[in-house]
Design a protein around this nucleic acid. Sequence first.
DNA 1: CTGTATTATGAACGAACGTTCATAAATTTA
DNA 2: TAAATTTATGAACGTTCGTTCATAATACAG
Lengths: 201, 201
Amino acid sequence: MSKHARFNRDEVVEKATNLYWEKGFHGTSMRNLQDVVDMRPGSIYATFGSKENLFKEALQHYAGAFEVQFNKCLEQQPSILGALKLFVESAVVDETGTAPSAMCMMVKTIAELTEEQAELLAETKQLLSGVESEFVKVIREAIVRGELDESKDPEMLARYLQVQIIGLRTYARANNNHQAVLALVDDIFATGPLAGAVAQD
Amino acid sequence: MSKHARFNRDEVVEKATNLYWEKGFHGTSMRNLQDVVDMRPGSIYATFGSKENLFKEALQHYAGAFEVQFNKCLEQQPSILGALKLFVESAVVDETGTAPSAMCMMVKTIAELTEEQAELLAETKQLLSGVESEFVKVIREAIVRGELDESKDPEMLARYLQVQIIGLRTYARANNNHQAVLALVDDIFATGPLAGAVAQD
DNA sequence: CTGTATTATGAACGAACGTTCATAAATTTA
DNA sequence: TAAATTTATGAACGTTCGTTCATAATACAG
């Protein structure tokens, strides 16, 4: 019952994701895509339907990888605030040097698209909302664990965290001064609303 | 000695700016531009040279308007920190409802372009740097005036402010919840590195 | 091994892209 | 007002766009 496909669908989606991430929706042509995924137009259209639909799958793949990375940070750090800080640092500086852009693909997409791609735009906003929900959950847990004061509002802190990540990654793309950006991360976790009773490194 | 132009160059640049700001560089076609500025292709090319060059002029026009807005805030508020907060608020929520996008055009451009438009990208980064320099200047003055502690680093605070504005405006575009964003602004100026001895409203 | 079903191919399509340039219109000069 | 100069026009160019579909290649079933 195996598929007859000579290509690996997941690999194709990942390659497409990286290209879209780097060049954006309008900046990526189907011919660019054909080259990097090594498929002919007929096969791409039979498999994914359209440029927009492939982009949608790429977005979803990206958001999935985002959550995997977040969970890795939670496992690596004993405290939740430590994990959040590690996550921000890992998102802001790409130690592997392999990311197609310093910026978040979802943010790039929200910056680029208009109502002419209403469905893609709505999907992107929803995926970003999903990330924020994850943040709310772990921040609630941080309050339960006593890492943050009970008076704090988890929804508000999650929004705040989103703003920081978006701002920091975009700033990192505009000025590739890693040192300055990491210093900002320290400052934000030391003196801002997210400052808690966690050991600083 | 008057020019023979039947069109007003500044008006044309402003209209082009608004379209580019809304739809981005790749999302805007020369035919879109021809419609909104009401000029025929030959005239546009005789005046501006290329799509890229018109975009460059649009960016410069945008950055100029940005500084005008900033100076207005400085005039309206007695304290510098109050002016900075007012500026952030006015950038984050468009009271007039006329802005083509909640996001900063420079940030949108940095998000969209790649090295394929190296010159435009470099120009954009430079304009953003110019904004940051303005911030450094007024933050220095805020320290002199005693609004901020002398131990603060103006360069670092200016970077921090850039991150906040970028993050907040992008967040506002992704979730058009003005109330939540304004609450975040309050929080940032109340508890973050930019919190000073200024009266809160 | 043969016939059927499935998958991959890539030439080709119409539309839209950025741009040019011979011509027309308007303005200035004499 | 006539000639010279400047400015505006828009049809048309070659290219690239997203997409399709008749055909070829492959895999599976009997």
